[in-house]
Simulated scan of single mutants.
Amino acid sequence: MSPTLMTLAAAYGAAAGLLLPRPAHRMAVEPEEDWRAHCPAGHPLTGYAGGWLGPPRCPRCRTACGPAALPTAAATALVCAALAAATGARPELAAWLLMAPVAVLLAAVDWRVRRLPDALTLPLAALAAAALGLVGWLTGTSGSWLRALLGGLLLGACYLLLFAVNPSGIGLGDAKLALGLGIALGWYGWRALLTGGAAGVFIGALWGAGLLLARRGRRQEPMPLGPFMIVGALCGLLPAAAAAG
């Protein structure tokens, strides 16, 4: 474990996390709605990249646009530092650091509107496949890459089956997210895939049971599974990455 590498990864994560509130606000809409182009008070969002990059508050009225910047920065920094600590200076760390801000953004959007947009889930899977494919080519570990692709297909198929059985509890967005998470987990082997996939379902079930016991949830009320899937994937990825070192 290199303290310098962890510090650099945490700084990168914090910087990326500071940019997440604006896209989280814009993407937290219902499926039939367009991406938001205004702050909650109705002022047009201005900034870079067509308003997707900018301060977390409206420049005109100072209304918050999305989740608070400090929590998203802290969460992304923590995830990136943990990935760096577990992976070390191995090439696949670059793939994990590229995927981490997208995963945090997905968690933020899903938590707000119970939705995982295709504009994030599918690029996350493509990013994982492309980045790990490059790592496999550079390091001669193409077998790990092929296993990663199979892992993504397997975990995605499992969630697709869960969607077919219980469409009110599992969404197609969850299956698409599982594709990218499965690719990452599959890089380290079937045990990592099983651990990460099962942990996501288990943590989500615990949260749902806690809400029911606290009388704050109803059985038919949709629950954001994406954040728990991502946390579960980390539960499989971090120990597997540490063991691979």
Rank of each mutant, 00 (worst) to 15 (best):
G50C: 11
L53V: 15
P55I: 02
R60D: 13
C61I: 09
T63W: 14
A64F: 07
A64M: 11
A64K: 08
A68K: 10
P71E: 10
A75G: 00
A75W: 01
A77P: 11
L78A: 15
A81R: 07
A81K: 05
A81I: 05
A82V: 02
A84D: 05
A86V: 12
A95H: 02
W96P: 01
W96Q: 03
M99Y: 00
P101H: 12
V102Q: 09
V102K: 00
A103M: 15
V104Q: 03
V104M: 04
L106V: 12
A108S: 13
D110E: 08
V113M: 04
L116K: 01
L116Q: 13
P117L: 09
D118I: 06
D118T: 09
A119F: 06
A119T: 14
L120A: 07
L120H: 07
T121G: 06
P123W: 13
P123F: 13
L124R: 02
A125Y: 08
A126W: 14
L127Q: 04
L127G: 06
A128F: 05
A128K: 01
L134Y: 11
L134T: 13
V135D: 12
G136Q: 09
G136T: 09
L138I: 02
T139N: 07
S142D: 05
G143D: 15
G143L: 14
L146A: 02
R147P: 01
A148D: 00
A148F: 00
